[in-house]
Amino acid sequence: WVPTKREEKYGVAFYNYDARGADELSLQIGDTVHILETYEGWYRGYTLRKKSKKGIFPASYIHLKE
């Protein structure tokens, strides 16, 4: 896992994603996520609506905010 280059990196989910394991994070369309790390097509972070739950999710489900 590699920390993100920018201190504040955010994105928005444009697909729903159902977590398949305890380390994964479920997403709903429109969720804003804070991205902490990246690795081979995956991000690690949390949604702003539930900051206490961190997990991994596919990068392809996220539109990055500039």
Rank of each mutant, 00 (worst) to 15 (best):
S60I: 11
A22W: 09
G21W: 06
V33W: 02
G30W: 07
Y43F: 09
G41S: 07
F14I: 15
G30K: 01
L27N: 00
E8G: 11
Q28H: 11
E66L: 12
T32C: 15
G21R: 09
A13N: 00
V33T: 01
T4S: 14
Y46K: 03
G41N: 07
W42F: 04
G21C: 13
Y17L: 00
P3M: 02
Q28L: 11
E40N: 14
R6V: 11
L27V: 02
K65Y: 15
R49D: 12
A19I: 03
L27R: 00
A22R: 09
E66N: 13
R20K: 12
S26R: 04
E37S: 08
S26A: 05
G11R: 02
E8F: 12
V2A: 10
F14E: 08
V12I: 12
Q28K: 14
G21Q: 09
Y43A: 05
V2P: 08
H63G: 07
E40S: 09
E8R: 09
Y17V: 03
P3S: 07
W1A: 08
V33P: 00
S52E: 13
Y15C: 15
D18E: 14
A13L: 02
G55V: 02
E24R: 03
S26T: 10
R44G: 04
I29G: 01
K53S: 07
L48G: 05
Y17F: 08
L25F: 01
G45A: 01
R44I: 06
V33Y: 02
Y46Q: 03
K51E: 09
I62V: 08
N16E: 08
F57A: 01
E7Q: 11
Y10P: 01
T38A: 12
S52G: 11
E40M: 13
Y39V: 07
H63A: 11
K51L: 08
G55H: 04
G55E: 01
L25K: 00
K65L: 15
L64M: 06
A13T: 03
W42T: 00
F14Y: 11
I35L: 14
Y43E: 00
S26V: 03
E37G: 06
D31Y: 05
K53D: 08
T4A: 15
Y15N: 14
D31A: 04
E37L: 06
K53P: 04
P3A: 06
L64G: 01
K9I: 10
K53V: 12
F57G: 01
G45N: 02
A59Q: 09
K53G: 05
Y17W: 08
G21L: 06
L27S: 02
E37P: 00
S26H: 04
W42I: 01
G45T: 02
R20S: 07
A59E: 04
A22G: 10
F14H: 13
L64D: 02
D18V: 14
G21K: 10
H63E: 11
K50M: 13
E37Y: 08
V12G: 01
T47Y: 04
L25N: 01
I56K: 10
T38W: 11
H63Q: 13
Y61Q: 04
D23H: 11
F57L: 02
W1L: 08
I29R: 10
I29D: 02
L64Y: 03
I29S: 06
E66I: 13
V33R: 01
A22N: 10
A59P: 02
I35T: 01
N16Q: 11
P58Y: 06
D31H: 02
K9F: 09
T47K: 15
P58Q: 03
S26I: 04
E40L: 12
K5E: 10
V2L: 10
E7L: 10
G41F: 05
D31C: 07
E24W: 05
I35R: 00
G30M: 04
P3Q: 06
G11E: 03
K9S: 14
L48V: 09
T4R: 06
Y10L: 07
S52R: 10
W42V: 00
H63M: 14
I62G: 02
K50Q: 14
A13I: 04
R49H: 12
I29C: 10
T38I: 12
R49W: 11
E24D: 04
G45R: 03
D18T: 14
V2I: 13
P58I: 12
N16T: 08
K65C: 15
F57H: 03
Y15F: 12
V12Y: 08
I29N: 03
T4N: 08
Q28N: 10
I35F: 03
V2K: 12
K65W: 15
W42G: 00
A59W: 05
I62E: 01
H63T: 11
I56P: 03
G41Q: 06
P58F: 08
H34F: 15
K50R: 13
K9H: 10
H34N: 03
K65S: 13
E8S: 11
K65R: 13
K53N: 09
I29V: 12
Y17Q: 01
F57P: 02
H63N: 09
K50G: 09
Y46A: 02
G55S: 02
I35W: 01
S26Y: 04
G41P: 00
A19G: 06
T32Q: 12
A59H: 06
I29F: 05
Y43W: 02
V2H: 11
Y43V: 03
D23E: 11
R6F: 11
Y46L: 03
K9Y: 09
G41E: 06
K5I: 09
S52A: 09
T4Y: 08
K9D: 04
P3F: 04
E37F: 08
K9M: 14
Q28Y: 08
R6D: 13
V33S: 00
G11T: 03
T38H: 10
R20Q: 12
P58N: 02
E37T: 05
Y15T: 13
E8L: 09
E66V: 13
Y39P: 01
V33M: 03
F14W: 14
A13V: 13
E7K: 11
K50H: 14
L36M: 09
E24K: 03
K9C: 14
P58L: 09
H63R: 14
D18C: 13
D31E: 08
H34I: 15
S52P: 06
D18F: 11
K51Q: 10
Y17K: 00
T4H: 09
T38M: 12
W42C: 05
V33N: 00
N16G: 08
K53F: 08
K51S: 11
K9G: 05
Y39L: 11
L48D: 09
Y43M: 08
Y46G: 02
K53I: 11
L25Y: 01
E8C: 14
R20C: 09
R49E: 11
A19D: 00
G55W: 02
L25S: 00
A13W: 05
L25P: 00
K51N: 09
A13K: 04
Q28T: 11
D31T: 04
F14A: 14
N16F: 07
L36W: 03
H34W: 14
K51P: 15
K53Q: 12
L48T: 09
A22H: 10
H34Y: 15
L27Q: 01
F14M: 15
T47L: 15
T47G: 01
L27A: 00
R6M: 11
K5M: 10
Y10W: 15
L64A: 02
W42L: 02
